[in-house]
């Protein structure tokens, strides 16, 4: 990080989901990109307005699943064949139908673990400190308020102009977010 911005950004508070969707749309049209919204529950259409990009978690899950699938199958194949040949009721050493349930279970297990680890790795949780919590009213984001935060790292960010813009969206309040 070359320069730490003095301000994390500016935050506007709205009291209903309709307003935050409209505000986000306006902000995007205005050219702001480095922004995020904080709401008490998933608001329909908000992710689209933010142009929320797809994450790579599905890819990580797929890789985890494939590792579990092939690992599980070849583990059994190797154990029952080359490593410790065991005659079970005259069945062939490569008893692939019998290997499928374990293969399936390991696929699910590895995919689930990959999903958990991948999610935590990509979203940076657990995160003990985040600047948005410096705004006292932000606690309401898990109650009934909806917040739009335009971050100072945005190239179009200008403390005065951005504040004017946010005020024009008729929020309940606009507050500075210190970093």
């Amino acid at each position: 990080m070359s320069r730490r911005p003095r301000y994390y950004g500016l935050m506007a508070e709205f009291d209903n989901p309709t307003a935050i969707v409209a505000a986000t749309r306006r902000a995007y049209a205005e050219g702001y990109r480095q922004m995020d919204t904080y709401t008490p529950f998933p608001v329909e259409g908000l992710a689209e307005e933010l142009r929320f990009h797809h994450t790579r978690v599905p890819l990580i899950v797929l890789i985890g699943g494939l590792i579990g699938c092939f690992g599980g199958f070849f583990l059994q194949l190797w154990l029952a064949g080359p490593y410790w040949p065991l005659n079970i009721g005259g069945r062939p050493l490569n008893s692939w139908p019998a290997f499928i349930p374990v293969t399936f279970e390991l696929t699910v297990l590895c995919a689930a673990i990959a999903a958990l680890i991948g999610m935590l790795a990509l979203n940076g949780l657990p995160k003990p400190y985040h600047p948005v919590f410096n705004v006292p009213r932000f606690a309401l984001a898990s109650q009934d308020r909806f917040f739009l935060c335009i971050e100072a790292s945005d190239p179009r960010f200008d403390r005065a102009r951005t504040r004017d813009f946010l005020e024009s969206l008729s929020p309940r309040e606009v507050s500075d977010v210190e970093s």
């Binding site: 989901p17 309709t18 749309r25 998933p42 608001v43 259409g45 009934d144």
Partner: peptide
């Protein structure tokens, strides 16, 4: 998930 069921959670078309 329960909050999503509240009537206030509906985004109105006025947006």
């Amino acid at each position: 998930e329960v909050r999503t069921l509240l009537p206030q959670a509906e985004v109105k078309e006025e947006a």
